[in-house]
Computed example of a mutant assay.
Amino acid sequence: MRLALLTDLHANREAVEACLAHAEGQRVDQYAFTGDFVGYGADPAWVVRTVMDHVARGAVAVQGNHDYAVTRPGSREPGRPRMHAEAREVIEWTRSQLDQEQMAFLADLPLTQKHGNAFFVHASAHDPIRWEYVTGIGEAERSLKASRSRIVFSGHVHAPALYRRTIEGRMGLHVPEAGQRIPLQPQHQYLVLPGSTGQPRDQNNAASYAVFDDEARDITYFRVPYDHGAAARKVIAAGLPIVFAMRLIEGL
């Protein structure tokens, strides 16, 4: 099976449409969405509905910190994500854009899913509700050890990366090149960060996603150009903080 992996869609219709169209050209069989369908962008209702439609056809989806925040106004729960003022402003606005069915869908999403040897989580498999950023070897090792799965697919970090843990416990990091097919060894553990579809932050404004082939046992990361100018203009037109429009343009 060829599985398309999209994460951190962040209400960016133009980027999501571009990646889904590109994935069709890669002959994917199924999709997995590892959280943060809302926040930052101007099209939360369209993005959530699109993910809902894919889930109805068998896709995997887990909850991200922005999805968690938007469905729990005023919550004092331990898992309430920390967000700066501009991000909280978009969360408040997003609640007015979603209908009851969409809000219920986000609220009911699981924090994790496990299918065979694959584990899906938005942040770290080590205490997912803490929303830990996996930005180095130490965090990656914690996530892999906690999952006990051969391969972990996650998001939260808006840049593509691939971590490996060998059978002897040695850790390594690979920064993938777009379009490069990367063979995965069955005896190792891997943590796959596809990069952000809706708000890349690695100085490249092209949308990011990956395709995992479980039969060929390889993964390929892709960068997909899209009309980021149109997405940015929508953010401004909606009255959302201009910083989120600039991020789309600059890839930061």
Rank of each mutant, 00 (worst) to 15 (best):
P183D: 06
R80N: 12
M103Q: 10
D29F: 00
L173Y: 10
I219M: 03
S147Y: 05
A210F: 06
S124F: 05
A159T: 14
D227I: 07
R57M: 09
A232T: 04
M171Y: 01
V48P: 07
Q180T: 12
S143E: 00
M103S: 04
P73V: 00
Y40N: 08
V152W: 03
D213S: 04
D53N: 07
A231W: 00
I182N: 01
G172N: 10
P225R: 03
I249F: 13
A216D: 09
R201N: 02
A45W: 06
L5H: 14
V62Y: 01
V47A: 13
S149L: 02
S196K: 00
A118R: 15
I182H: 01
A159E: 15
E17Y: 08
Q187K: 09
D29G: 11
R217G: 09
A85G: 00
L184I: 02
H158Q: 12
E250D: 13
R95N: 11
A15Q: 01
H22L: 08
S196T: 02
F222I: 06
P241D: 10
D227E: 04
R201F: 07
S149T: 09
H228C: 11
V235M: 04
R247T: 14
H66S: 05
P176A: 04
A61C: 15
G138W: 15
R13F: 10
P81F: 04
Y209K: 00
